[in-house]
């Protein structure tokens, strides 16, 4: 049995990718299951999806803790979540990495077999938008087999209708452009996974960790009001940040009123200040600014 975990952001189609692959594997006569990690659907937040493929019927129904392969749809996730968590030594990582971002290869290269592809560029060039879920499947097929490009046509046609041709092209191109290196001869042992044991309360507040039943307080009371402030949602931004043109800004406050994340606030002297720690990059402020003083730009743009 092969177990695969997908890492993406809400809205990028990680769940769809796992499902398409499962359907194709079933068409090949194998057994497969695809399912997301259960949780609220949140656009932009890191999410995981799971895929099992086997020659035999699959009776497991639980989350995949130690996958054979990990698929990363969004390069910004690599520094954000431990994508290699539980991955078997010498296991396969299929990563969406731009040519300039191949530093991550060094990070994982001596432990795992890392297949890299610039899926974002391929998606923009073929589909027109940076949605990488279909492109990355081409890389996964190149790296792990599982099914064939030919078998993918049916499920893709059914799922995407008239958009299927573009998505199939993305699949094909990613298959061709993916570089699969040799497996490391002697994979170094994986670092022990950071469990919740021994984690302080302050550390718990920093991370996306739900407690298990025997860690709950009676009544589930929380005596630290506003404690989510320690959790910075700014790293959900993946498509630019607001930039305030100080020449045009009159500090009218509409961006402050319309911000769902309290990321546009008045300073003590009445100016508007952007809070990078919490801004999720929705772009409402730029859309609603009556003076057109806010625009969404790439992260690297100098304020």
């Amino acid at each position: 049995m092969m177990e695969i975990r997908f890492h993406g952001r809400g809205g990028q189609g990680a769940v769809t990718a796992a499902e398409l692959m499962a359907r194709a594997a079933i068409l090949d006569g194998k057994y497969a299951q695809a399912f997301p990690n259960f949780g609220p659907e949140r656009r932009g937040a890191p999410v995981t999806a799971f895929l099992r493929v086997s020659e035999q019927p699959i009776y497991l129904r639980e989350k995949i803790e130690s996958p054979d392969t990990v698929v990363v749809l969004d390069p910004t996730l690599i520094d954000l979540v431990n994508v290699a968590d539980g991955l078997k030594p010498g296991g396969m990582m299929v990563m969406n990495l731009a040519a300039s971002g191949r530093g991550a290869l060094a990070k994982y290269g001596d432990q795992f077999q890392v297949a890299a592809v610039d899926a974002s560029r391929i998606a923009v060039e073929t589909i027109g938008i940076p949605v990488t879920n279909t492109a990355i499947l081409g890389s996964l097929i190149k790296a792990c087999g599982i099914t064939s490009l030919k078998t993918m046509e049916g499920p893709m046609q059914r799922r995407f209708g008239r958009l299927a041709a573009k998505n199939l092209l993305a699949l094909q191109r990613a298959f061709e452009e993916t570089e699969v290196p040799e497996a490391p001869a002697a994979p170094s042992p994986a670092a022990p996974a950071a469990g919740q044991e021994g984690c302080t309360y302050a550390e718990l507040l920093q991370r996306e960790a739900l407690l298990v039943w025997d860690q709950l307080q009676i009544g589930c009371d929380i005596d630290l009001p506003g404690s989510t402030a320690a959790f910075h949602t700014g790293n959900w931004r993946s498509a630019g940040r607001p930039y305030i043109d100080r020449e045009k800004c009159v500090s009218c406050g509409f961006c402050h009123v319309y911000c769902p994340d309290l990321a546009m606030n008045f300073t003590d002297d009445g100016a508007i200040e952007w809070d990078h720690r919490y801004c999720k990059g929705c772009g409402i402020c730029a859309e609603e600014c009556p003076k057109g003083a806010i625009s969404m730009r790439e992260e690297s743009h100098e304020q």
């Binding site: 659907e41 949602t233 309290l262």
Partner: peptide
């Protein structure tokens, strides 16, 4: 009005609403 906008917030940042959530905005207001 904008001039008499209460500074009070009952919610802290760091909540996990989707990008551009209109519901958490309505609740905050």
């Amino acid at each position: 009005s904008m001039k008499s906008l209460p500074a009070f917030e009952a919610l802290a940042s760091g909540h996990r609403a989707c990008q551009g959530c209109g519901e958490v905005l309505a609740m905050r207001l």
